[in-house]
Design a protein around this nucleic acid. Structure first.
Length: 412
RNA sequence: GCCCGGAUGGGGUAGUGGCUAUCCUCUGGGACUGUGGAUCCCAGGAGCCGGGUUCGAAUCCCGGUCCGGGCCCCA
């Protein structure tokens, strides 16, 4: 036997049961996003490498699947979708009336060590609200993310922060230093941060950063510390709107986010039961359009880690009604009956035997179906078919029309 | 990128340096050519890959691949 060809590392095959569940969850996400007026967009699976290196943040750049095509162009499989969607916006939608509400569901690629909830090909569901610079927009996006996770019956915590506070505190430092400080805050390595800032003689700044980062709770906590007035007003307003829509949150100013393009409100959601891969959603306000040659445009968005959500989501798809057309010798007629029923009934699975089994074998094979319709010479002549309820074990004789009526009633 | 643990038919497993690799499930067929899930019978299908030690390796050793767990990072 020749060697079996295996799946590449970090990729997955999905069997029907799992696909069904994934489609069900996807459908729910779409439905909720659409109920907020968001419309689906789709961008290419690969883009110019530059799109992602321009502003994505160090971590992601190292993980990019990059390659040269036959024309020598530097291309990359998309590691995320915010940059592609903003590129699409700049290319095609600049003059459309604002705001634009876009959502996407697509696969992304990152070269990483695979683990539970972390794959080299993974799916993201996300939205981008383009053109609004206001708390109303930010609150809408946060609420939408919250609703989706809530409707999927996931247990999670939502943390809301604002990168403006820390950015402002660090504004007098050079970019390299401030970026290192932000990274240490993001990792929660406060001891290392203390040592680092001590070396630079920034003890005073360190202690105010420490105070800021430790703030966790509802909005009112913020009153007690000395932060930028405009930012405080913004956070208060966003939180107020979130509370109105029943969103449960924690203000957490330590949220920094790995992607460099965030400028304002940021938020993350953590689900229970996923270990180190607990972050199921991340987002915030950013400015990216001008980087891709457009006008400076404020935007807010989030991305949900679809595969992580699937790990903890309890949603079960509704089982379809399954009907077997069992033939007693008359294949031709059985196929005809099956086709007629498929035409008349929607959302019902209708299956015939294609293995040449005898009657008994067919019934045995279809024993976990809901109904069996027996089609043989007698039925072909009279037009009256035996329909057997396989779950209850009862059988009756009906015409095609009556069968259609009966099954339609059961579907409801 | 770092640290650990694994890998035996499609799925789940047993076992051991030595005969034809165990059991369950599964799949196909038969008993049974007009009525299912039971039972019995027959058939099918496996030691991740490469190298080493050995008379002999699925078993021991080394390397690789893949999976899982924990970090890092992130969704």
């Amino acid at each position: 036997m020749p060697n079996k060809i295996e799946r590449p590392r970090g990729t997955r095959d999905f069997l029907p049961d799992e696909m069904e569940k994934r489609r069900e969850v996807e459908k729910l996400m779409r439905l909720i996003a659409e109920s907020y007026g968001y419309k689906e967009v789709c961008t290419p699976t690969f883009e110019h490498l530059e799109l992602f290196t321009l502003k994505s943040g160090e971590g992601i750049i190292e993980e990019i699947y990059a390659f040269k095509d036959k024309g020598g162009r530097d291309l990359a499989l998309r590691p995320e979708l915010t940059a592609p969607v903003m590129r699409l916006y700049v290319n095609e939608c600049k003059v459309m009336p604002k705001p634009l509400r876009f959502y996407y569901f697509a696969n992304c690629f990152r070269y990483e060590r695979p683990q539970r909830g972390r794959y080299r090909e993974f799916w993201q569901f996300g939205v981008e609200l383009i053109g609004s610079d206001r708390a109303e927009g930010e609150a809408e996006v946060i609420t939408l993310a919250y609703r989706i996770l809530e409707k999927l019956k996931i247990k999670f915590n939502l943390h809301i922060g604002h990168v403006g506070i820390l950015r402002k505190m660090l504004k007098d430092l050079d970019e390299k230093t401030s970026s290192k400080i932000l990274r240490l805050i993001d990792k929660g390595e406060m001891e290392e941060l203390k040592r680092f800032m001590n070396e630079l003689g920034l003890n005073e700044l360190y202690s105010s950063i420490k105070d800021t980062v430790n703030i966790k709770g509802k909005v009112d906590f913020l009153e007690s510390i000395d932060i930028d007035k405009d930012v405080l007003e913004r956070i208060k307003k966003v939180c107020e709107l979130c509370e109105v829509s029943g969103v449960d949150y924690i203000v957490d100013l330590s949220i920094v986010r790995g992607l460099d393009y965030y400028t304002g409100i940021v938020f993350e959601a953590y689900a229970e039961g996923l270990g180190a891969q607990k972050q199921v959603c991340g987002g915030g306000s950013y400015r990216l359009a001008h980087v891709f040659g457009g006008e400076d445009t404020p935007s807010t968005g989030f991305a949900i880690g679809f595969d992580r959500v699937m790990e903890v989501c309890k949603i079960e798809p509704k089982k379809k009604l399954r009907v077997a057309i069992v033939n007693a010798g008359s294949y031709l007629h059985a196929f005809k009956v099956a086709e007629k029923l498929r035409e008349k009934l929607s959302n019902v699975e209708i299956v015939t035997d294609v293995m040449g089994r005898n009657l008994k074998k067919q019934l045995s094979h279809f024993s976990d179906f809901d109904f069996a319709i027996i089609v043989g010479k007698k039925e072909e002549e009279t037009g009256i078919y035996s329909i057997k309820d396989l779950k209850r074990g009862v059988q009756e004789k009906l015409s095609i029309e009556d069968i259609v009526n009966k099954l339609s009633r059961v579907v409801k």
